[in-house]
Simulated assay, not measured.
Amino acid sequence: MTPTSFHPDRPALVGRLRAAGCVFAEDEAELLIAAADSPEALTALADRRVAGQPLEYLLGWAEFCGLRVAVDAGVFVPRGRTALLVEAAAAVAGPAPAVVDLCCGSGAIAVALAERLAPRWLAAVDVDPAAVACARRNLAGRDVAVLLGDLYEPLPRDRRGRLDLVVANAPYVPTAAVALLPPEARLHEAPVALDGGADGLAVLRRVAAGAVDWLAPGGHLVVETSDRQAEALCASMRALGLAPRVLRAPEWDATAVTARRPG
């Protein structure tokens, strides 16, 4: 973090953030102070935070699985709950897997899996050009292809049927519930990263259908969903011939589904 040579009024900043509804006002105040190099810069950051802009956009990064991941304005902010997806993927991946991260957003999951798995091949895909640009920054210097396109469409054809692991934090908010999301998400993150269709499972069903063709026999699909959607998603996966299992982590308010392709 950037050292500061000025002496901000921390209690006043904390009070202002708390009044604006920031639950972790003390922590946010320290992060904003560290990110500012002058009183004017701090005031500008505080003004934007009070106006509802996500803290991660103001800082330019988010913490995810113990890593600092760059996050650009408009790109989906990685949530702490998605650590369950990473843990679940690492548990089923096997040695030196071939992996694709669909709906990659900032590339946070791909970064975390690159650290944990030492994959022999890793790609990340998103349909949003802003997300792809952000993921390319986060994955720069690694042997990772970051591709623009719809789910499996931009993947090399020779990878079909040869992937060991497909992970996806695809959008799963039902369309009617998007308007009920916190303003930080609803007003600032790309709608394509949030809206999962009428029941929230439209994109996840497409991810599962494609996994049947792209996974190697014995390979795994790992996705995030909500607790109330998990059983319906599992039913769709079983109908495709996949063998799903639901994982829950109440401490993270997180639900993930792993699905194995038999063979």
Results as ranks from 00 to 15, higher is better:
192 V>N: 02
175 T>N: 05
258 T>Y: 01
236 S>V: 08
61 W>S: 14
91 A>L: 01
68 R>K: 13
14 V>R: 15
150 D>Q: 12
171 P>A: 04
83 A>V: 13
256 A>F: 04
167 V>Y: 05
165 L>S: 09
36 A>V: 13
158 D>C: 00
188 H>T: 03
225 T>L: 09
118 A>S: 15
63 E>S: 14
167 V>S: 06
197 G>M: 10
197 G>N: 13
89 A>F: 04
252 W>T: 01
210 G>V: 05
191 P>R: 14
84 L>F: 07
122 L>V: 12
161 G>R: 01
82 T>F: 04
29 A>G: 12
199 D>Y: 11
176 A>F: 01
187 L>W: 01
26 E>Q: 14
179 A>Q: 10
152 Y>A: 07
143 D>G: 01
37 D>Y: 01
135 A>M: 01
242 L>C: 02
87 E>Q: 13
149 G>Y: 07
173 V>L: 05
238 R>V: 15
128 D>I: 00
249 A>P: 01
253 D>S: 14
119 P>D: 11
89 A>W: 04
169 N>P: 03
47 D>K: 11
232 A>S: 14
191 P>E: 06
153 E>I: 01
34 A>R: 13
252 W>G: 03
211 A>D: 04
230 A>N: 12
232 A>M: 04
235 A>H: 14
152 Y>I: 08
192 V>R: 14
157 R>V: 11
154 P>I: 02
184 E>Y: 03
218 G>L: 01
257 V>K: 06
263 G>D: 09
108 A>R: 12
41 A>S: 14
188 H>Y: 15
262 P>H: 06
111 V>I: 05
192 V>M: 10
229 Q>N: 10
262 P>F: 05
51 A>Y: 04
131 A>L: 05
255 T>Q: 06
170 A>M: 10
138 N>D: 11
198 A>R: 15
69 V>R: 07
42 L>D: 02
152 Y>M: 07
198 A>M: 11
159 R>C: 02
14 V>A: 12
232 A>L: 13
230 A>G: 10
193 A>F: 08
57 Y>C: 11
50 V>A: 08
67 L>A: 11
156 P>A: 14
208 A>R: 02
218 G>I: 02
27 D>I: 06
164 D>T: 04
36 A>C: 13
34 A>N: 06
259 A>N: 06
2 T>K: 10
19 A>Q: 15
214 W>K: 06
13 L>W: 10
47 D>F: 02
180 L>V: 00
5 S>I: 03
131 A>N: 04
239 A>C: 03
62 A>V: 08
258 T>D: 04
4 T>N: 10
96 A>D: 15
97 P>E: 08
108 A>S: 12
105 G>L: 01
188 H>A: 04
39 P>Y: 09
89 A>K: 03
162 R>S: 13
234 C>A: 15
257 V>H: 08
99 V>R: 03
143 D>M: 02
31 L>Y: 09
232 A>N: 08
83 A>F: 00
147 L>W: 09
134 C>Y: 07
110 A>V: 09
175 T>L: 05
